[in-house]
Simulated scan of single mutants.
Amino acid sequence: MSEHWDIYLTQSNNNNVFVRLDLGIKDSVPISGADKLVQVSIQTKSLFSKKMNFELLHIIEDEIGSALTESDFYIGVITEADMRTFYIYTIQEKKLLNTVESILSKHKKQTSDISIVDDPEWSFYLETLYPDVYKYQWIQDRHVVEQLIANNDNQKVPREITHWLYFSDIASRESYKNKLDREVYKIIDETTFEEETDYPYQLSISHKGTTELETIYQYTTELIKKSLEVGGNYDGWETQVIQSK
Rank of each mutant, 00 (worst) to 15 (best):
L129E: 05
P131G: 08
D132Q: 07
D132Y: 08
V133S: 05
Y134G: 04
Y134C: 05
Y134T: 06
W138L: 12
Q140W: 05
D141Y: 03
R142T: 12
H143D: 12
H143V: 12
Q147C: 11
Q147K: 11
L148E: 02
I149S: 12
I149W: 08
I149Y: 14
I149E: 14
A150Y: 08
A150W: 07
A150D: 12
N151V: 03
N151E: 12
D153F: 09
D153V: 11
D153G: 06
D153W: 07
D153R: 14
N154Q: 15
N154Y: 13
K156F: 10
K156C: 07
V157R: 10
P158S: 11
R159T: 13
E160R: 12
T162V: 07
T162M: 09
H163K: 01
W164A: 04
L165T: 09
L165I: 13
Y166I: 02
Y166R: 07
F167A: 08
F167I: 12
S168T: 14
D169S: 08
D169V: 02
I170T: 15
R173H: 06
R173P: 00
R173W: 12
E174K: 11
E174L: 12
K177I: 15
K177F: 01
K179N: 09
L180N: 03
L180H: 04
D181C: 03
D181Y: 03
R182Y: 04
E183S: 15
E183C: 01
E183H: 14
V184A: 04
V184P: 07
K186I: 02
I187S: 02
I188Q: 12
I188V: 13
D189K: 14
E190N: 00
E190W: 03
E194G: 01
E195P: 00
E196Q: 09
T197V: 10
T197W: 00
T197G: 03
T197M: 12
Y199M: 13
P200G: 06
P200W: 09
Y201L: 00
Y201C: 09
Q202V: 02
L203M: 06
L203G: 06
S204P: 02
I205Y: 04
I205E: 05
S206C: 11
S206F: 04
S206G: 03
S206E: 10
H207G: 03
H207R: 07
H207E: 13
K208Q: 06
K208A: 03
K208F: 07
K208M: 09
T210L: 01
T210V: 13
T210W: 00
T211M: 15
T211S: 13
L213V: 01
L213S: 00
E214D: 15
T215K: 08
T215C: 03
I216Y: 05
Y217P: 00
Y217H: 15
Y217I: 00
Y219H: 15
